[in-house]
Design a protein around this nucleic acid. Sequence first.
DNA 1: AATTATTTTTAGACAAGCCTAAAATATTAT
DNA 2: ATAATATTTTAGGCTTGTCTAAAAATAATT
Lengths: 227, 227
Amino acid sequence: MTKVSALSQAEENYLKEIFHLSGQDKIKVSTNGLAEKLESKASSITDMLKKLGDKKLVSYEKYKGCSLTKKGEKIAIHIIRKHRLWETFLVNKLNFGWDEVHDVAEQLEHIQSLKLINGIDHILNYPKVDPHGDPIPDKDGNIDYLESKVLLSETAISSKVEVVQVSEDSLDLLQYLDSIKLNLGSKIEILERVAFDESIRVKLEGNGELSLSKKVAENIYVKFIQK
Amino acid sequence: MTKVSALSQAEENYLKEIFHLSGQDKIKVSTNGLAEKLESKASSITDMLKKLGDKKLVSYEKYKGCSLTKKGEKIAIHIIRKHRLWETFLVNKLNFGWDEVHDVAEQLEHIQSLKLINGIDHILNYPKVDPHGDPIPDKDGNIDYLESKVLLSETAISSKVEVVQVSEDSLDLLQYLDSIKLNLGSKIEILERVAFDESIRVKLEGNGELSLSKKVAENIYVKFIQK
DNA sequence: AATTATTTTTAGACAAGCCTAAAATATTAT
DNA sequence: ATAATATTTTAGGCTTGTCTAAAAATAATT
């Protein structure tokens, strides 16, 4: 068991972001890609990748991008677990809106205490997804990805679907979805595709017919419902 | 309204410790005193006091010690409020022992979100004291000190008292008190004082007669109970 | 294949927060 | 009051994590 001495918040943020950019198929992550996400400069990224490389948390070869090692991935997943559990706690227990949780969870994800996060997991009754529908890794780091989800922007006319996940990156999107009463679990029927701007006309259960821009539809995942 | 741009965790820790060392009568705090509590060197303290002085959070004159300004005190109290609310949350909601909360609360006290800490206050039903009996400052920074408390070490023979506060500084003390089943609210009768080592013999409701060293008795606050 | 454009790395600098060692000031004891 | 002691500050240095500007490597284009 290689015990990892506590990482700085900066290091943890790098690992988390590499995990996200790497995606489910674990592609290599570029220096510039990381720099953009972390709102930092490429030179800073290079410095940190060297350090994380020395610590065997990422594999890094000059000019070749980086990827997480097993050890780095394990830590990244644990941070993501904490982030998503805290978001769930804020929404379920403290009545935060799904648009209010991100910044606070970014702070809380760095708190070091297994007993604390497992206690939060327990009082939430071991939730499988966070308020945006993202899967919450379990105590052992297993992530239960929903295989059957598709982008709303890619559904065929007259399909009936249920919202299972929305992008948590944009505050504006989350607030807009709130305003049209579109939540996780919302039922949607696709009525029409407008060729001109690629928007779609839908029937949203509980809020009648409305039109969603291509950009909005690209940030909503749904699953088909038999009926 | 002078809006204070977010402070670093180091700065917050200095303000908190100055508040504690300053005590209820707001005495000036020495550089060495701070250094010891913060487990740091006097030279580091001097550096930081200059900085906090520039920010008008402490009044500091070379070689004369320091004290908090109104602004600094307000921030210190808010951090203490967060610390004590989190400790209460850990004990009341997540079944932590009173000896397990300190380190985690030291981290959680730096989380910045009024909505979060006020939400925690709410689900705890606005507690007045933390798990060690320390008063929890309210939202406006008011602290309800228990005037009538005295040190157990200073009580007269045959008084009957109730434990209202214990020092949270020592893990060993808290664990020892656990082991003899002495908690907040425990009822104690003082039976005898042993001159030789200044220990006291007491009757502890629920755990019979036992002897407490001077040092232990100096870390327990009690109030007298009539009857 | 050579040139241009893009990406990434290196080199050197800076702020925060800490350190050690030496100097300055304050306090205590004679 | 002065010498000895203790406390505090200054000076200079180190690490972490960031930055800018310049150099090097890779990728794209003609």
